[in-house]
Nucleic acid binder design. Structure first.
Lengths: 356, 356
DNA sequence: TTCCACTGAGACAACGTTATCTTGTCTGAG
DNA sequence: CTCAGACAAGATAACGTTGTCTCAGTGGAA
């Protein structure tokens, strides 16, 4: 196998024996002590002779010194890492979260976000939590959906609990049955707003495309919508399986069975896209024949044709809030204030008054 | 919810003084030496008395021991981290790359990918490279676009060079003027395939929506398309500014000025979406009035209406290849073989024979 | 002049691992 | 019976940084 038996003295052959210049090297080269070199190269603020300071800086630059964050972290205890476990990077929903978190981490805090991709796999979620923990992240942001089987949920709850005990600040970006602060909009409010938008335009017979109601988020939205429609005396039909994978039958069935429906709420941007396609496919047009209110985030919704009216989940605010919370908590603040994050109605061209 | 307030020992006031159980603790508790504990808790393979082994394992579990990757890495030199600098997480293009890289890192190698989001900002790209370097990543995957101003390119080239010298395996996921192995499809081939698809269906007058031809990728695609169309005697019109931000005028202008155009190539999935919207807006339909071939990756293209025929860039293969290369190189292989990655024609419903 | 507070720089230990060296025990051959 | 050789476990020294302690020099006040 390894033919090169470290013949160090002479030829460091292949991968060039990774050996970066270290603080000791800089210090020696500059003729100062390691402490002094460290003090200079650290953020400064210390009283060091300007002459020495300059000399050290010069030497470091010349040697191509790059501080070793690992050693620094090991010694000083605190990490500047934040872990983000996202559900699925292909989904712009998580893309927006990742964008918000990484951007805010970079801009507002001296932190680096590690984005992990759980691929909708609860096992992988556990694994990433563990790995991030091993990397001693200061905080953890869980943004995966709640695809929780009971056993996974338990395991996750256990590891979360341990991490918290170990000092990691754990946060959630969607409502889940886990004991950690949540940063997300009120999904009941989201449901209300979506329903209200159709009601406001005078729709009396509507459909609700909710997807599989297996997680908390969708259940909350659904309940709020139903309640809102009921309160307004609007007839509503619930449409269950409508993931973009195979939405064909669902919308067709709905529309076939309820020809008088004039409006639809799509509770996910993925579902929205499926619906629009399907509505087009069966020869109807949005919003001429049927109005659509979507729930989601993605800027992609605005690029669709027509521009979809939707309830924006304000994911950016959620991500920022979670990060701020972590930063505050990690720096010793007793408890950061949790301000409310409100969903926003983004008016597009997909809702008009019904003509029947 | 969970009403259990951590009323543990006495009063561990604020952030509970992060103090995780360490190997030393485990060893002491289990009554063995640190070396032995370490040997057991490391992947094993060492000859350790089964009794002790079990005892150590038990103790570690009971104490909630979590190995400190930082210390491990610091001591053993090699990292299992790979840095990915992506252009923009909102863009599903980079989403697919991130997905491929993180998934492959997790599945095929014992590595963890750190995804960074350069937000199309060259300065940020530099910053992230530096930060990843400080974290002593084993490899770096640059997937940002080439938004390079000259000064930034130079700075980037310098830091890349230093990183390489320091032992970091640097790779590129799009053609850029940097000295590092590239893992991406041949964009000339992509252009050819896109053009060929329209030609194959009999189109004789086509438009090329290429966006701003400021980077290498688009230039290569454009040249190949032009050459292919020319060779087939197909009349082509180049359409420059067509980002989704404000594509309104461009397509309209094109279509107004060239009413006889029967086919379009959109050289980006973002552009594709803009085009489709615009074509619809001016009252035409795809593919009835105009056929569209897109270039891109996103599965989103398949969810559009109609399903877009497109040249898939095989980003997954690119990401995997880059990662494999890094892993091979990091583990001392002299030079990993670079296999060709081929684009794929995904046939949708957006191209038919022209009716005029 | 003496003493103390103060300043700036060096010495040194420690963070939690792992690699290497050393020690001790046991087997079996000479 | 002794000693080489194998084997398992303990001891120890790093890895590169930072926090703390020490120390030498300086200036001012008693």
């Amino acid at each position: 196998m390894v033919s090169v038996t470290k013949a160090e003295g002479d030829l460091p052959s292949l991968p060039a024996a990774r050996r970066d210049p270290t603080l000791v090297d800089v210090a020696r080269q500059a003729g100062v002590s390691v402490s002094t070199a460290g003090r200079v190269l650290r953020d400064g603020g210390w009283p060091v002779d300007p002459l020495l300071r300059e000399r050290v800086r010069e030497t470091a630059l010349q040697l191509g010194y790059v501080p070793n964050v690992l050693a620094r972290t090991l010694r000083s205890g605190g990490t500047a890492l934040v872990g983000l476990v996202a559900g699925n990077m292909l989904d712009p929903y998580y893309g927006e979260i990742a964008e918000a978190v990484t951007r805010h981490a970079e801009a507002a805090h001296p932190m680096l976000a590690m984005v992990c991709n759980m691929q909708r796999d609860p096992l992988l979620e556990l694994k990433y939590c563990r790995q991030l923990w091993e990397h001693r992240v200061a905080g953890l942001i869980l943004a995966g959906g709640g695809f929780d089987q009971v056993t996974h949920r338990t395991q996750l709850a256990v590891i979360i609990e341990q991490m918290k005990k170990s000092g990691v600040v754990v946060t959630l970006l969607s409502p889940r049955d886990l004991d950690a602060p949540q940063f997300c909009v009120d999904n009941r409010l989201v449901g209300e707003m979506a329903a209200a938008e159709l009601i406001r335009h005078g729709h009396r017979r509507v459909g609700i495309a909710i997807g599989r109601v297996q997680n908390l988020v969708r259940r909350q939205r659904l309940e709020a919508m139903v309640a809102t429609f009921d309160a307004a005396g609007v007839r509503h039909t619930i449409l269950e399986p409508t993931e973009p994978s195979a939405p064909e039958t669902a919308v067709s069935d709905l529309l076939a069975a309820n020809r008088d429906i004039t409006g639809l709420v799509a509770s996910t941007h993925m579902i929205s896209m499926g619906i629009i396609n399907e509505v087009l496919r069966v020869g109807l047009a949005v919003p001429r024949d049927i109005s659509v209110v979507a729930i989601g985030n993605a800027k992609l919704l605005e690029w669709s044709t027509p521009r979809l009216t939707h309830i924006d989940l304000n994911l950016e605010a959620c991500g920022r809030a979670a990060l701020d919370f972590i930063a505050a908590r990690a720096s010793g603040a007793p408890q950061a204030a949790q301000t409310a994050i409100l969903p926003r109605l983004i008016t597009g061209d997909s809702v008009i008054a019904p003509d029947r």
